[in-house]
Design a binder for these strands. Structure first.
Lengths: 130, 130
DNA sequence: GGTTGCCTTGACGCCGGTGGCAAGGTCTAG
DNA sequence: CTAGACCTTGCCACCGGCGTCAAGGCAACC
């Protein structure tokens, strides 16, 4: 399988695949003419990468999942390193949610305050501008 | 007031102030030697900018708040344009919270699945490696 | 007049995952 | 023979809010 086919089947671009390779996530043999030749087993690896990227993981976070898949597991999530990353990411997401809730409260309060006090300079300015 | 003093009083850097100026958010007169000279009224403007940046606003979002302050309002939030931005940001934050909740569910499920199935290839590999 | 400490503009770096382009080699069908 | 559809490496651009250095001018004090 050449890079174009893998890209299409995995729903990504050749550019991305070469990028993953330079970062040690996927592997390719080379044919006589220098073309990258992919094993069928790279397809689920690329799919795993895409899925984790979509969830907000960075390439470094994804590495253990790929290693886990290569170790022969049906899922890349079952190895200890992957689980550790999952736990860490879950904590990060929780922290993010908390932060956004705090921001939300702030915005809601400011909005309420703004609406309560809207009849001030702005309106007066607009009235005098007429 | 020169730029260093404004930066210190506002709790930011001279670099940031110059950046805000190039983006049309703050104003400075120039003394004979070319130094930026700030009016006292710029201090609350810079404080407003910092506060909104800290909440996650971009410089473009902040512009109406600055205009509102310059119009003579005690708060930069009370003008219609500011309120519109506040509403939009609130919606964005809500969307962000929803997205993070979805990611959280996903992670939690994957984690649960990983822990349930952990006694597979990984463990066997480690056992055979001994 | 020399040091210190302010100020000026300009420009590169960062972070991360690509997109896009250039300049070229390769393979196949007509 | 040629067109076009693949492939290769390599490098610039992006986004945004700065940090950080470079090279220099200005002010004030000893």
């Amino acid at each position: 399988m050449l890079i174009g086919e893998l890209a299409q089947r995995a729903g990504t671009s050749t550019r991305a695949l070469r990028y993953y390779e330079t970062h040690g996530l996927i592997r390719a043999a080379r044919s006589a003419n220098g073309y990258r030749v992919y094993d069928e087993a790279e397809l689920p690896v690329v799919r795993e990468i895409r899925a984790l990227l979509a969830v907000g993981f960075g390439l470094d976070d994804i590495r253990p999942f790929v290693a886990c898949l290569r170790a022969g597991n049906a899922s890349g999530h079952v190895c200890p390193d992957s689980v550790a990353v999952l736990r860490r990411k879950l904590a990060e997401v929780d922290a993010g949610i908390d932060r956004l809730h705090a921001v939300r409260r702030e915005l809601r309060d400011q909005l309420a305050h703004a609406i309560t006090h809207r009849e001030e300079t702005c309106s007066r300015l607009r009235r005098t501008a007429r």
